[in-house]
């Protein structure tokens, strides 16, 4: 029983991490109907940047997290304005080709600069502690992940539900054409959302480096996970991707623990079934887009 709860705990931490990594993607998909397979590249580059900051320059781990956000956000904004802006109006095939190109370039560049071995971030001692509560073993590091991601999720929910930017963003996701007609600056909202989403991915990449494993294969390895969160969760709210990410995290951890021989097979099969069962996403409203 304790093992089950420990797995559940690890799964939740993993799922929340996936949410922070992927939530930006659901916004870009909903807002611009953009198929972006390169979302993981931003997380990887920012994760590596954090690793260099901590390991080489002695920046404290907790201080490196906002810096990783910044790296991801700046990179995202620059890429969006210079490159992505050219592909919104192109076919989905073009978007796929383009973003795979970005993935390949980022993978090769990181391998060139940092080598192809997995990189670890030195965690401060207090994060290596473990607490046992009622037989459930909880690592301090995963508690931190849950805390940070939980705060971020609440913050995002607040921004979307309560701020002017949030209501404009929701209007734009709902129907970009109408929103444009109402004078909402969809393009700049998109740039901000893209940058923020990339920043969150960067933060997630740094925060979760130990759980996820940072290596040049990162963008491809997690491409599928992000896509699952987005397609299963839909883009009409933040709750959808959040629940989808949690389910995915718990299912993946449980799958790897209880049926290690099957590996990622479980996740891919679940995804196939999901896609067939509810192709428009688990949490989209009936009759929605």
């Amino acid at each position: 029983m304790a093992a089950v709860l420990t797995n559940l705990f690890d799964g939740i931490a993993y799922g929340m991490l996936l949410f922070v990594l992927a939530c930006g993607l659901s916004v870009t998909l909903g807002l611009m109907n953009l198929i972006n397979l390169a979302h993981g590249s931003f997380a990887m580059v920012a994760g590596y940047a954090a690793a260099v900051l901590v390991n080489r320059y002695g920046v404290p781990f907790l201080a490196a997290l906002p810096l990783a956000f910044l790296v991801g956000a700046v990179l995202g904004a620059v890429m969006e304005r210079t490159l992505y802006v050219h592909v919104y109006r192109k076919s989905h095939l073009d978007q796929v080709l383009f973003t795979i190109g970005i993935v390949f370039m980022s993978m090769a560049t990181v391998a060139y600069v940092a080598g192809s071995a997995q990189v670890f971030i030195h965690l401060p001692g207090f994060l290596k502690a473990r607490y046992v509560v009622g037989g459930v073993s909880m690592g301090a590091y995963r508690l931190l992940i849950i805390a940070v991601c939980g705060v971020l999720a609440l913050g995002l929910q607040f921004i979307l539900a309560r701020t002017r930017f949030g209501s404009r963003l929701r209007a734009a996701v709902d129907d970009p054409v109408v929103a444009r007609g109402l004078g909402i600056p969809v393009d700049s909202i998109f740039t901000i959302a893209f940058a923020a989403g990339s920043g969150l991915a960067g933060l997630g990449g740094a925060l979760g480096a130990e759980v996820l494993g940072l290596d040049p294969g990162f963008p491809l390895k997690f491409m599928v996970y992000f896509l699952i969160v987005v397609t299963v969760g839909g883009s009409s709210s933040i709750t959808g991707p959040f629940v989808a990410a949690l389910l995915l995290g718990v299912a993946d951890v449980a799958g790897k623990y209880y049926v290690p021989d099957l590996g990622a097979f479980v996740i891919y099969t679940v995804m196939l079934v999901m896609l067939l069962w509810r192709p428009a996403g688990l949490f989209t409203r009936a009759g929605g887009r």
Binding site: L83, V87, D94, Q95, L97, F98, G101, I102, V103, M105
Partner: peptide, 10 residues
């Protein structure tokens, strides 16, 4: 390959 893909589309 990646660069080629990006250029192709852009």
């Amino acid at each position: 390959i990646g660069l080629l893909l990006v250029l192709l589309v852009v």
